[in-house]
């Protein structure tokens, strides 16, 4: 009997831990960081895989042929770290390595880097084809949100 109640207690603990972990993961995926693009971009939404390819600098053009200009914050910026993990599901060092491999082998270019979220908005608003990311609270009418499916 004692063994059995132990088993039941352990099971309850396991399920609780699992539920807590699950709810934390759910919260993590509900990020307040959104993809933003220049108003000239006609694409209505992108999949996570496409977003990843765009920010890895492996997708050079929008589906209508327009050149993509990727804008990022520095690797160590907290919003950049959250963006890569929460929206793309990769780590900043992975993205950096993928850019370096393109830049130093003649197979691609690095993204444009800006230092603050307001510079990010400014750069996207003035560059046709530009894409970046911002915390929802910073949004303004000069840029468009690009939903990630």
């Amino acid at each position: 009997m004692i063994a059995r109640s132990h088993l039941r207690t352990s099971f309850t603990i396991l399920v609780t831990v699992w539920l807590i972990t699950l709810s934390r993961l759910t919260i993590a995926s509900e990020t307040d960081i959104v993809l933003v693009v220049h108003p000239s971009v006609q694409t209505q939404s992108v999949t996570r895989d496409t977003a990843r390819a765009i920010f890895a600098m492996r997708q050079r053009t929008w589906p209508n042929g327009q050149a993509i200009h990727v804008v990022v914050l520095p690797n160590r910026h907290p919003i950049h770290e959250r963006f890569t993990k929460e929206v793309l599901g990769v780590y900043p060092h992975q993205l950096q390595l993928s850019w370096d491999r393109l830049v130093f082998s003649g197979t691609g270019q690095a993204p444009d880097q800006v230092s603050t979220p307001s510079d990010m908005l400014e750069h996207i608003a003035t560059t046709p084809g530009a894409v970046g990311y911002i915390e929802r609270g910073y949004l303004d009418e000069r840029v468009q949100v690009l939903p990630v499916e």
């Binding site: 992108v46 999949t47 895989d49 496409t50 492996r58 997708q59 050079r60 053009t61 589906p63 082998s105 003649g106 197979t107």
Partner: peptide
């Protein structure tokens, strides 16, 4: 390396192209 890279086709899941010159 010294290349001209021409991306001949690209859509949301596919792309292909060519590199001409000295490629890595």
């Amino acid at each position: 390396h010294g290349v001209i890279d021409y991306q001949a086709f690209s859509d949301s899941t596919t792309r292909f192209g060519t590199q001409i010159g000295r490629f890595k």
